[in-house]
């Protein structure tokens, strides 16, 4: 009996030792899209409308954060990665080393990275320098920003979020967040937190603003403050706007190509506005 038990265990170990081989890309009629939580609603709406027009294709959208999507692309577990931040050179090197293909970046929408405060907060405008001070832990009380006295409770995203990385690079100039920034799982959780906390401040994609207000942001102390409306984001006046991307390994083929082309078409771009994001500026004919 002992020999048989040992053989059984050895068989299971052998199974566990097998490496999982990556999925082949662009085959079958299912397209997997994985990544940014900022873009997950947008991706879901795109996939709904696209599948309505093309019933033979299934488009599967998963969130998890831009970092998770990029890692899935590098590991070959998704066809398209949706990201709210650009891929770093290191990540592109990983992908190139593994698959011998260049990563292709396709901007698909625009987003104004909004800064949210509770609706009852008297503050309506902030400068980038003030934002940096708040999130680095240098400014800790609302009265330093011109509001009523109270501690500033910082809400943010966790490290797999492209929004988190983008905010760190562009607002904090790559310096560290304060240690007490609450890392929540998605922009919706950030919004929920701020709507219940009058001392809260948070950041996230403009598409999620419900029950909170987005402050106007000025680039420096003497520049005019702009709110993240569509005109300000497209014209670049709003200082923290960003592109939202689709990444694929190599040029997209077949069904993936058709999906991405549709997303970039007029019809796909109109869907952006329905979800609360902004379409890419139209190329002049």
């Amino acid at each position: 009996m002992k020999i048989q038990t040992l053989v059984l265990i050895a068989g299971l170990c052998a199974l566990a030792a097998c490496e999982r081989s990556g999925e082949t890309q662009g085959k079958a009629r299912t397209i997997t899209v994985k990544g940014s939580d900022t873009m997950v609603d947008l991706g879901a709406r795109w996939s709904q409308v696209y599948m309505h027009h093309n019933p033979a294709v299934t488009v599967q959208i998963t969130g998890g954060g831009s970092g998770t999507g990029i890692k899935a692309l590098i590991d070959g577990q998704t066809d398209i990665c949706q990201a709210s931040r650009p891929m770093t050179d290191k990540e592109k090197d990983f992908a190139r080393a593994r698959w011998k293909k260049e990563v292709v970046e396709t901007p698909v929408a625009l987003d104004g990275l909004a800064v949210f405060v509770n609706e009852q907060n008297p503050i309506n405008e902030l400068s980038l320098a003030q934002l940096e001070g708040v999130y680095r832990g240098k400014i800790n009380d609302w009265k330093e920003l011109g509001g009523s006295p109270g501690p500033i409770i910082r809400y943010g995203r966790n490290t797999s979020s492209g929004t988190h990385i983008y905010f760190k690079e562009h607002v904090l100039k790559n310096k560290e967040f304060a240690t007490d920034v609450q890392a929540l799982a998605g922009t919706a959780a950030v919004i929920n937190g701020i709507s219940q906390d009058i001392h809260g401040i948070g950041y996230g994609g403009i598409g999620y603003a419900k029950g909170v207000k987005a402050v106007r942001v000025r680039e420096s102390a003497d520049a005019p403050a702009y709110d993240p409306s569509i005109e300000n984001v497209i014209s670049g006046k709003y200082p923290i706007s960003r592109k939202l991307y689709f990444y694929t390994l190599g040029e997209p083929q077949g069904d993936i190509r058709s999906f991405i082309d549709w997303v970039l078409s007029d019809e796909g771009q109109k869907v952006c506005e329905q979800v609360g994001y902004y379409p890419l500026p139209k190329r002049s004919a």
């Binding site: 998770t68 490290t159 797999s160 240690t179 007490d180 609450q182």
Partner: peptide, 25 residues
Amino acid sequence: AAVLSFAPTDSILTFSAAIASELGD
């Protein structure tokens, strides 16, 4: 929030939450 303090009313980051939120990327 990975805050090192002994006050119970500060935010915390536990082992399991760290693994769950960061292993993905």
